[in-house]
Design a protein around this nucleic acid. Structure first.
Lengths: 338, 338
DNA sequence: AGCAGAAATGAATACGTATACAATAGTAAT
DNA sequence: ATTACTATTGTATACGTATTCATTTCTGCT
């Protein structure tokens, strides 16, 4: 326990196996041109000594880190772990480490630092706001990036998006067809393109039906502890409340549900609520939230693949892949189909 | 965009600043003994060129990676992001990168690989099951580790735990004092010490009151999609159901709530439910789950600090820090205080 | 057996940094 | 001005790997 044994190097293995360091390297990197007998002899020593190549020396020599970064914000929004799970699965299956940055606080500095110091071979940006400088840093460092549900004007990179605007429109259509004409929209910070697009689609849908979103029924707040719950309470206890509320994402919708419940406003009897994202939780019996679902696992998988392909130099033009989102009708709108 | 510019090295900076590479290194690592004028001259070039030291070369030279690993399992359990958020905050504030391994699938191999190849300076293990080999790998590699709510017999390392057994006992006492004598316990995989301890405490509490946990009211399942929801449905629709259910953690409890709701069994009127962990969601109005709350942020913060101290060689004996958990009474037990 | 050519291995080197050691410039005291 | 320092900078080297180039060892064939 106290005997601080030094890590073995390929040179040590070479000495023990009676070969040169170059041969050890060749064996471990799996190039051919090594005699099977030699290979076995080396591998025996490697196994016996539990040797692993030093990742940093490898990275320095090859300028490849085998590490990718994932930038997330608000990791406690349940959609983030869902994305992370799939990304981790894909990257782990391809022998890549995953560095996660939570860019809420000082995270962006850390991200930029890692990118600029060559720590990562590529970065996945997930829907988020305060990462514009980091995107620029990655572009400057000529490191491949992919984004999920996130767009920055004026720069082009591979993207995976869902049909956010169309989804918003679909919610509006649904409301209209069900006779809900006094409708509200609750949104978070407008620095996230997903939220902007969803709202735009919703407004467009209303307008196509000859309606419009009344200013007193439009609410925009920065995401903070209990802000949307309070909003739900306000809406639920107001005399002249809307018949239905559409929300920028599921987490907002759930907080609104909390607020409504807190003031005894019943869903769906007194008011309808619709979310956006289709997080797993939305399907729970105790949540039962109608939502616009996006195939988030597929999107994450796609993003991982695109990034790895680009890192390997297997891609040309940047590309934007669009996934169709889908309205899933549940109890928060009385399970009412159109 | 296409001009693949090479990264600059400290040697390049040295040349541009008219000094030696060693001086550049001295300036950037902040050692004293550099004339202020020289320092400024170098820094000017560094700034102008946007130079950042190569992280891998630094790591190789110093054998310090400035990276810590965090091993999690079931990242979609909401307590995990809560822990990750606090850990990220602490580590980012100390200029350390965070590598996250999701050890559900192939994750453990990846973890072991990273540890053995010297990728990380230390590892935080969060409550989990299939990481025993990884713990051993870290110990073998003499890399500092800290665990949160996790114990492996026979090996000693720094730990942060909450009073899991005592919490379980407290739930039993609560049930008994409220006159609930026909009680059930629903647990997940017993390879997690938290779950084992909570169950043990619950049983102990019952026994102290002269009761015992009936075999037909003890349920143990491996965590899988809808397993606990199905269990909730079974319990809720059985003729001879218990008066109250204690669960190994909040996520299990919530799935049980889902199942109960699905079969129209009302909480708390028909049956009580209690969770364990105190995830944020448990306090939501639409969940309103009585639970044993642990100060998870404090625990995560403590774990991060302990790990960094040990990496810096500032710690002696291994230590176990215990945090008091606390029963938080909510609607799933009718808000009934004792 | 001798030889050409292929196959396998070894020797040498570079990656970019931090640091021990050597060398130089600067300073104060005589 | 000379000495004896100290402060500052430069030179050289090592970290552990992958890879180029040179060298040796095998083959098969005559």
């Amino acid at each position: 326990m106290n005997t601080k044994t030094k890590r073995l190097s390929s040179t040590d293995i070479a000495r023990l196996a009676g070969v040169s360091q170059a041969t050890v390297s060749r064996v471990l990197s799996g190039v051919d041109g090594v005699k099977p007998a030699t290979r076995e002899k080396v591998m025996a020593v490697v196994k016996q000594q539990g040797y692993r190549p030093n990742a940093f020396a490898q990275a320095m020599r090859t300028s490849l880190s085998s590490t990718v970064g994932v930038a997330v914000s608000r990791i406690t929004n349940p959609i983030v772990p869902e994305i992370l799970e799939e990304l981790s699965r894909q990257f782990a299956a391809n022998n890549r480490r995953v560095v996660v940055w939570n860019t809420d606080e000082s995270g962006e500095e850390s991200l930029i630092g890692s990118v600029e110091s060559g720590m990562v071979d590529g970065v996945v940006f997930t829907a988020a706001s305060h990462q514009t400088r980091a995107v620029q840093a990655a572009l400057d460092a000529q490191i491949p990036i992919v984004s999920i549900n996130r767009t920055v004007d004026g720069v082009d990179y591979d993207q995976v998006v869902s049909t956010n605007e169309r989804g918003g429109e679909e919610v509006a259509n649904y409301f209209v067809k069900c006779g809900k004409t006094r409708v509200a929209f609750v949104n978070g910070s407008l620095d996230r393109t997903t939220l902007v697009d969803r709202e735009a689609g919703f407004r467009k849908g209303l307008e196509k039906a000859g309606l419009s979103l009344l200013p007193e029924f439009y609410f925009q707040r920065a995401f903070q502890e209990n802000v949307f719950r309070q909003l739900g309470m306000d809406i639920g206890s107001s005399e002249n409340r809307p018949q239905a509320i559409a929300c920028g994402n599921d987490l907002i919708a759930i907080q609104v549900l909390n607020g409504l419940k807190a003031v005894g406003c019943r869903v769906p009897e007194d008011i309808w609520v619709v979310g956006f994202d289709g997080i797993e939780m939305s399907g729970w019996d105790i949540v039962d939230l109608t939502t616009v679902q996006q195939p988030i696992e597929l999107m994450a998988k796609d993003a991982a693949t695109m990034l790895m392909d680009r890192i390997a130099g297997r891609r040309g033009q940047t590309e934007t892949r669009r996934y169709r989102s889908e309205l899933v009708i549940r109890g928060s709108t009385g399970n009412q189909r159109v």
